[in-house]
Design a protein around this nucleic acid. Structure first.
Length: 168
DNA sequence: AAGACGATCCTG
DNA sequence: AGGATCGTCTTT
């Protein structure tokens, strides 16, 4: 089980590191399901014009300003997406979960996890709804531009901050 | 109070 | 290419 210290690194380091980790979800009936993370994206601070917290510290992204290890659940169209808050308090960053094994895409992953907005800000720990476990899997990966951020600056759109685990 | 838009997905 | 569909933010 990965504890609070794990989430204190920055989102760029953690986005690739989370590939292959198990995302564990305990549902209301107590059943725990585990999903391997296959795709992520990093959102890195106020300077990142693609980040929800860019010049907007009081809106829905306010949880990104807290110390890493919390769930930032937010709605996009009809789907709830999961971003895992990372880094130190006061620096808004996080890792968007864009794919789980068998559930490609952030919306599909969120739907499978049964994400609800009431999980906003909950800790990534067995005390909360979800947590991460490391079972030793260390996949190779490829890097890509982030998706769906047409509103961001040209240089931020060009950053290769999306990470996909290689097929094995 | 009303409108615009989105870190998406599905269908045709 | 376009519709679904709702929370959040912006504008009246």
């Amino acid at each position: 089980m990965l504890g609070a210290e794990y989430y204190s690194s920055d989102a760029l380091v953690l986005a690739s590191d989370m590939l292959g980790k198990m995302l564990c979800r305990r549902s209301a009936d107590g059943v725990v399901r585990r999903y391997r993370i296959t795709e992520t994206e990093a959102y890195l601070g106020e300077e990142d014009t693609a980040c929800h917290a860019h010049r907007c510290p009081t809106g829905r992204a306010r949880v990104m300003y807290r110390a890493g290890g919390l769930a930032y659940v937010h709605r996009c169209h009809m789907y709830n997406l999961l971003t895992i808050v990372t880094g130190p308090e006061g620096h808004p960053e996080g890792v968007l979960v864009r794919g789980l094994e068998g559930f490609d895409g952030p919306g599909r992953a969120g739907r499978e996890l049964g994400l609800e907005l009431s999980m906003y800000g909950s800790p990534m720990s067995p005390e909360g709804f979800m947590w991460l476990e490391d079972d030793g899997c260390r996949p190779g990966f490829t890097v890509h531009p982030r998706v769906g951020i047409g509103y961001a600056s040209e240089e931020d759109r060009a950053r290769l901050w999306r990470f996909r685990a290689s097929e094995q």
